[in-house]
Nucleic acid binder design. Structure first.
Lengths: 390, 390
DNA sequence: CTAGTTTGTTCGTAAGCTTTACTAACCAAT
DNA sequence: ATTGGTTAGTAAAGCTTACGAACAAACTAG
């Protein structure tokens, strides 16, 4: 049972919001500046107080004051004097205490098992754990998650900043899983349950929305769409640097949008030609398994299947890319399926179906985070929620 | 040559931004609270300082202090004592000085003429003006806009809060029209030009993005997509209460997204089946004009044409609605074309092509703002930019 | 050694919001 | 009429936050 010596920091930003939404006190401004200092150190690395002052626009006095707080809280450490020779009093280097805290990340998006990891502040995975799901649903499934968190916590030796969970289904901002059919969850207050049990800050969000945080954490793109292709198809979206949740908390649920005007495979939802029916991994592997590997054109037949899937993805994404003028779309899923023909077909389709002029610098790429994208995204979510840093 | 006694107020909001973006000083907090008070009065109407304090969460002391500033600036006025009898000291009612300022709104989205209006703080149109465009382009077109603004300014008798312009094409956040082919504009710094000439705050944005502000100003929906159907087809988007601009400042440009997988009419851009080729007003009227009005099935033939256009719109919007989990989509354009078969077909298509469960409360409606949507949106833009109010 | 530079701290100040306490002004009940 | 209770608005004091000025420490360059 570990506790951290600080709570979540409310964060402010210059925003283009049309209407102010609530009062702001000077102390809120301070939280913001605190997070700003932390963020500067986190992304730019060890440097002096004076450096931070120059980079943030705050004065040296204010930075020193904020840093004193952060050091007292154990979030920042002094590293001693800068080595290089230059005029003036030598600087005392400071940095985020990168090895003082760890984060628990949980990925509930796989069908057969729940994955978990201890992640350090840099996003590196320190240790892993998993539990087989064995088709558990409802409270049983919740118990499995708690077991997984518990066993990971026993492996940590330093304070834990918080617990981040990426869950399938629709998750509201309070970490209540409104609906996750696979897990038999309806209005399961996962965040509250875990927070009660472990007395740690807990953040829960949809798996694809969590995944896009991992991508954002490493690229810092302000506009980003991540398509997560697995047993189902979902998306996570960041616009203007902020995650998009959606009015019904179901943003990114594009798996059951119909593709094109020429029908398509029957989907589990009962309709024909849903994106998921074209693109979900089980569907793709089933199609590929039917191929005769000995046939002379096996390779091109495989590419045709994958290219058609990619084309269908492009057809669905084109209106979204156009409407949002997105510059960066990322695919996450099995690289052996996504890379190559599928990827190329998606790019081609996107380019030919949107106005090239406006989307000239559109990039579509595979994520480099492989299997760990949800685990690392969950860590980013905690980092961002607790420290205002990512 | 009028000037206003105050500048733009930087606005802050509790945000879910992942990373803090700049320092925040106590004076920024005060600007925010100032706008909050103004907003409360603006939307809720005349009330006492104590009422405002209760509604904003600020103390009566702070509200009194802020209101004193606002009164000194002429933005707020005292209206005398509240009439109704109740215990305690009678309240002094205060309200936004609704008749102390006017706004100039300009709509450049029509092909044949430029429209302008003097708009009051409530969004009501006080007077109108227009200039025929006569195919003017480039600097000539800029001069026409300046003339229009100039002639409107001569009709104002009270201070002008600012000038708002809705322009076709791609407009960056600094009010530079990056590209407006119809007007022959490339990188025209319209905002700077007008600000120099008239010495007033000027805000310029894309016409559809401006139009959605008008809708937001009257509904205060946090997520809103407006599709503007005229000579072309464009969209304006508000997500999480904030306008979406797009990485290349071209958000909402969905006119040249291809619809469906079965071709379609040839578009001016050279491809087949763009949304604009299906849905633009000239295309629809041309199709309808070909109908034999004497034929026995003329009415149903008309409906078939409009329904197909509506279906095509639904096909393009479905992925956007799904990805953003939008709850409100608004159509703007000629009501005689949009209302009825077209509207119904769009709704049907959206419902059948997205996952009903997640988009249960999706509403698709026509705007009630008719022809003035850009003019009034321009006023909202100025109101929001100058006072943090909408 | 001197002059110049840079760092980080101390001290005093200005701005902003809160709490506390007050006066003014009203209603209701005695 | 008097008393008690309530509400509005203000005044004073205090806390927080960030800033500017000034300074000492510690270095380089010449």
């Amino acid at each position: 049972m570990l506790t951290v010596p600080f709570g979540g920091a409310p964060i402010f930003t210059r925003s283009r919001a049309l209407r102010p939404t609530g009062k702001v006190l000077p102390e809120h401004a301070r939280s913001h500046n605190r997070a700003l200092v932390l963020q500067t150190l986190y992304t730019a690395g060890a440097r002096s107080r004076a450096d931070v002052a120059r980079e943030t626009g705050l004065t040296r006095v204010t930075v020193s004051d904020l840093v004193a707080d952060l050091i007292a809280e154990g979030l920042v450490v002094e590293l001693g004097q800068r080595e290089d020779a230059r005029p003036g009093k030598p600087a005392t280097l400071i940095d985020v205490a990168r090895d003082a805290f760890q984060i628990i990340g949980i990925d509930l998006s796989e069908h057969q098992r729940f994955l978990g990891a201890v992640v350090d502040l840099e996003g590196r995975i320190v240790s892993r754990a998993e539990v087989p799901r064995d088709d558990a649903t409802g409270e049983q499934a919740v118990a499995l998650v708690a077991d997984l968190v518990g066993s990971l916590l026993t492996t940590t030796t330093i304070p834990v900043l918080g617990i981040g969970v990426g869950s399938p289904g629709v998750v509201d901002p309070h970490g209540v899983v409104r609906s996750a059919p696979n897990l038999g969850w309806t209005d399961v207050a996962l965040q509250a349950l875990l927070a009660d049990e472990f007395d740690l800050p807990v953040h829960v969000a949809n798996d694809a929305n969590v995944a896009v945080l991992a991508e954002h954490g490493s690229t810092h793109q302000d506009d980003l769409l991540l398509v997560k292709i697995g047993h189902g198809v979902g998306a996570g979206l960041i616009i203007g640097g902020r995650p998009v949740i959606g009015g019904g908390f179901a943003a990114g649920e594009i798996g059951h949008v119909e593709v094109g005007t020429d029908g398509g495979p029957r989907c589990v939802c009962g309709r024909d030609g849903c994106l998921e029916a074209w693109l979900a991994v089980p569907r793709l592997t089933a199609q590929l398994d039917e191929l005769d590997l000995e046939a002379p054109d096996a390779a091109s037949a495989r590419d045709r299947i994958l290219a058609e899937a990619g084309r269908r993805l492009g057809i669905v994404l084109a209106p979204v890319v156009g409407a949002l003028n997105l510059s960066e779309v990322v695919l996450s899923g099995p690289a052996d399926l996504l890379d190559g023909a599928l990827h190329e077909a998606t790019v081609d389709t996107l380019r030919t179906r949107t106005m090239a002029e406006n989307n000239r610098d559109l990039r579509l790429r595979l994520t480099e985070q492989a299997q760990d994208i949800v685990l690392r995204g969950a860590a980013v979510m905690v980092l961002s929620g607790q420290l205002g840093v990512s």
